[in-house]
Amino acid sequence: MNIFRLAGDVSHLVAIIILLLKIWRSKSCAGISGKSQVLFAIVFTTRYLDLFTVYISAYNTVMKVVFLALSYATVYLIYMRFRNTYDSENDTFRVEFLLVPVTGLSFLENYAFTPMEILWTFSIFLEAVAIMPQLFMITKTGEAESITTHYLFFLGLYRALYIANWVWRYHTEGFFDQIAVVSGVVQTIFYCDFFYLYVTKVLRGRGKMTLP
């Protein structure tokens, strides 16, 4: 554990809580891609199967359980509780275009051809692209509420901090997880365009982020 890793995990947690609170308080999930949230729930489910097989630390176990619970709560709020506010007409990204290649890749490129390893790899690859329905939705409607952009900012910050964590771990422990690092870098690149808009539009302006 290093400061980048801890800050990354905290950013991830903050992002998820921001989204959950936004939906809960406004009683609306307008502007939120339910598809992205389902993909994140699948990511956590397939990655954290090791909760049943290996104990790493209390921190690790608690965080995994919290991420799982919060992601399922988010999906519940979007598709059940506040279903009538869900903007399905603009949440039209075809997730099969993500799921099929990600499934194929996880069978081809993994550390071992076992169900657990393939599912872990699948979760890493899927996480890299899971935000695409949300970004697609913003592009389609041309705007995002500022609270939604704060959510995306913390999600992107989490990814950037994980890269710093890997650089740190590589130099101090010789740790290098090729699958996680390559997908993590790809994932972070998706946020670059958004980061630019966030700084120029949201932080300097106020209210909604509108696309040029």
Binding site: R5, D9, H12, D50, V54, I56, S57, N60, M63, K64, F67, Y111, A112, T114, E117, W120, Y162, N165, F176, D177, Q178, A180
Partner: peptide, 10 residues
């Protein structure tokens, strides 16, 4: 990295 390595990251 080996399969038996513990994946300690989230």
């Amino acid at each position: 990295k080996e399969e038996t390595d513990v994946k300690d990251e989230l």
